[in-house]
Each structure stands twice: as C-alpha cells, then as structure tokens.
C-alpha cells in the first residue's frame, strides 16, 4: 500500500466508527454480560449474580449431553459447509456458461432460502420418514417406486450420523445462496483474462484451476464463515424436523432448553460462551492466515 494521506485515514476511521461502536455495544457488551452470567449461579427468574467461578463450565465438560452436542455440531458443520460450498460452486460454474434458462435455474436454486426454516423442516421430516413396509413414505417411498431400494435408509434416525441428514435439508436451503455468491464472483472476473489464457493454450480446467479459483478464494472465505455461523447456531431447522431430542441435540438447542425451559441462565450463558470460544479457536487463525496471505500477494 502506498502512503496514505492523513485526511483519508481520518475519513476511513469516521466511516467505520458507527459500526464499531454499534458492534461494540451489541456484540461485545452483551458477550461480557453473558460471560458474567456464566460465572454466576443464576437459576430462576430473578437475576442472581452470585459468583461460582467456573462451576457451570466444569459441569458442562462432564455432561454427556454436551458431548453429544459437540459431536453433532462437528458432523453438521462439516457436511453442511462442505456440501453447500461444493454444490454452490458447481451450480455457479454451470450457470456461468451462458446456458439458456439461466435466470430460471438461479431462482429455483434460491427459492428454498425464501421459506422459513419451520416449514421446510416439516417437509423434510416427511421426506425423511424412516418407516418401511406398508407405511413407507417420503424419499424412501420414492426410491422404492423407482426400483432404487438400496437407497432406502433411516435418514436422521440413523444412530450417530443422523445429524448429517439434517445437514442435507440445510444444504437444500442454503446452497442456492452460496451459488449466488460464487456467481457474483465469477461474473466479476473479466473475460479478457480467460481469453488471454485461452490464447496461451490453456485448457478450460487449467483456466479454472490456475486463474479463476485463486481469484474467487476470498468469496470461499466469506461463504465458509456465513455457512459456519449458520451451522453453529442451527436451531429452528432441527426442532422442526425432529423436535428436541438428544440424538440430534446441538448446543443452541441445549442452551435454549436450559435458559428458557429451565430458567438456568448461568448454565445457558456458559454454553454460549463455550460456543464463542470454539468459534474463535477455529475462525480467528483462519482469518489471520487469509489476511496475511492477501497482504503478501
């Protein structure tokens, strides 16, 4: 970067200041509040800030339910983020080929996002009904009538991996948006760049591999973070598909139950602080790595 005039620096700071103040109060102020509550024994309606140290945290570490939550979150995040990125990029590349009907496809892929999780959850619950025999329904019935019986499975009632089936519904809902992000990025890459590469004798694959993918990698970062924050907070979708049940439990559901069904605010706050800690451990190094790489380019 060239040297920056003082005036520009002042303007830049003035431009971002309102956002910084707002985020400072609404995010960091409230996180501090949660942190304080998580160190208290507040249980019941009346605030009770009696200090109990890390008691709530230790209880969670020993809690088998919390272990299930962590496992489910990891599986869900990997399947959901990975699936949405791959599917979104795949669809964006196809749509970038100037095929007829582009806007039709684009809107079809985006449409699921427009519908509330609560209703899509119900439809997916029907689709993923695991019953067999005379009560076969949903996808299993579809597979059966198409002669694809080997595809019939227990979906979200599969032990341990059931949460991945929920991720499938989330992919359905969010991959269209990933597609739109990628398409926006692809549309931002000038044709001249591709033409120049073609003139140099590069194959289409080489063009993608060496020119386009590196150029859209910041968009992959955005998409990963956006999808990641959804997967860490997923709540409505799971509840709509499967109710609140332990095999498909995630920290957000646990926190909701502890806080608003059980009024154990201390423990609920501890869950959210732990979630934030996990996020910072995963996300911050990644962001720094990317920022550093950008600076080096």
């Amino acid at each position: 970067m060239p040297k920056i005039k003082n005036r520009d620096t002042l303007i830049s700071i003035a431009l971002v200041m309102p956002s910084i103040v707002a985020v400072g109060i609404f995010v960091y102020g409230f996180i501090l509040w949660s942190l304080r509550v998580s160190l208290s024994q507040w249980k019941g309606l009346l605030p009770d800030y009696t200090w109990v140290g890390l008691k709530n945290y230790f209880e969670l570490f020993a809690d088998p339910r919390f272990h299930i939550d962590i496992r489910n979150t990891v599986i869900f995040t990997v399947v959901f983020v990975g699936g949405s990125l791959v599917l979104g990029l795949f669809m964006a590349i196809l749509l970038d080929q100037n095929l007829p009907g582009e806007s039709f496809f684009r809107n079809i892929f985006l449409f699921p996002m427009a519908i509330s999780f609560i209703v899509t959850g119900v439809v997916w619950r029907w689709l993923m009904n695991p019953a067999t025999g005379s009560r076969i329904s949903g996808f299993n019935q579809l597979f059966h009538s198409l002669g694809l019986d080997f595809l019939i499975n227990r979906w979200h009632t599969t032990p341990t991996w059931g949460i991945a089936a929920i991720a499938l519904a989330a992919i359905w809902q969010m991959s269209g948006y990933t597609m739109a992000m990628y398409l926006g990025g692809l549309r931002g890459i000038s044709d001249d760049l591709r033409e120049a590469a073609r003139v140099d004798g590069a194959s289409e694959w080489q063009i993608y591999r060496h020119i386009i993918f590196p150029l859209i990698s910041p968009i992959t970062l955005s998409a990963m973070i956006i999808l990641g924050h959804i997967s860490l907070k997923v709540f409505d979708l799971i509840v709509a598909i499967a109710g609140k049940q332990l095999p498909l439990d995630v920290p957000a559901i646990y926190m909701w139950q502890v806080t608003f069904d059980g009024y154990f605010f201390g423990k609920g706050a501890a869950i959210s602080i732990l979630l934030l800690l996990v996020v910072s451990v995963l996300v911050i190094p990644y962001i720094y790595y990317n920022l550093k790489n950008e600076a080096d380019v």
């Binding site: 700071i13 609404f26 996180i31 979630l275």
Partner: peptide, 28 residues
Amino acid sequence: WKFRGADVIFPLILFGMFIPYQSILIPL
C-alpha cells in the same frame, strides 16, 4: 484503505456474527 488497526477491526466485527442470539435476548 488500511490504517493502523484495520486488520484487528475486521476480525472483531466479523466475530459478532457468531454470537448466539438466543443467549443475548435479555440484555438486548
């Protein structure tokens, strides 16, 4: 328009996305 601290501010703003909204309803 990098100024000193810009690289810190971005992750700090970004982090706000991960706050679980259910847990901050009361202070909100």
